[in-house]
């Protein structure tokens, strides 16, 4: 029974060290070295107002914008208070119907040929800020038509915004949908 005292006291001591001192050190380092990243990587407009985070995707359905991936986050998709995936199994009939509906929406908007998987299948977080470059190119014709600009110019905007693999070989090439759409609107 001589071990009751260390059991209780070590719990209290480690609560102070791991639950107080450790996060305080990390917060100190984070704010000193990476003030922008540690506070959420927010994007500001010309007046300095925060208009979104470059890491958190937003819903777009208007024809003049690049569309992001389908999202199952929250009741309306891209709700940061309810991050998560669809958790649909691959043979679930409801899921396959949803996928068919999404394909139809894309076809109706003028997409031809094989559709990229990331435009039809929902992300894991529901907040994925990215689409693949191929998914952006599938949407160029539609957006150029609605905005009345040339497809070539739009393609140039797209290729300028492609984020390559990190350090040249990690992960996958991608495009940040929010940043790209803000660029189209001339906000950023």
């Amino acid at each position: 029974m001589k071990d009751i005292r260390p059991a209780i006291l070590l719990f209290i001591i480690f609560t102070i060290i791991c639950g107080g001192i450790y996060p305080a050190i990390v917060t100190g380092v984070a704010h000193a070295l990476f003030p922008k990243q540690s506070t959420g990587s927010f994007i500001s407009d010309k007046t300095g107002k925060e208009i979104g985070s470059s890491l958190i995707g937003q819903p777009f359905s208007d024809a003049k914008y690049f569309w992001p991936r389908p999202s199952s986050a929250g009741e309306f998709g891209y709700n940061p208070l309810g991050s998560g995936g669809s958790n649909a199994g691959p043979t679930n009939p409801d899921y396959l119907k949803t996928a068919a509906d999404r394909v139809k929406t894309l076809r109706d908007s003028g997409v031809t040929g094989t559709i990229t998987a990331d435009l039809v299948q929902a992300s894991a977080s529901g907040l994925d800020p990215h689409i693949t470059p191929e998914s952006a190119l599938l949407q160029v014709t539609r957006i150029a038509r609605v905005r009345g600009i040339s497809e070539d110019r739009l393609r140039m905007v797209v290729s300028k915004h492609i984020e390559e693999r990190q350090f040249g070989f990690l992960g996958a090439p991608r495009l940040n949908v929010l940043v790209l759409n803000l660029a189209l609107d001339g906000v950023k």
Partner: peptide, 13 residues
């Protein structure tokens, strides 16, 4: 359905 055959459901780009 005419979609590229790779499973991206529940994955991040």
């Amino acid at each position: 359905l005419g979609v590229q055959s790779i499973n991206m459901e529940g994955k991040e780009v």
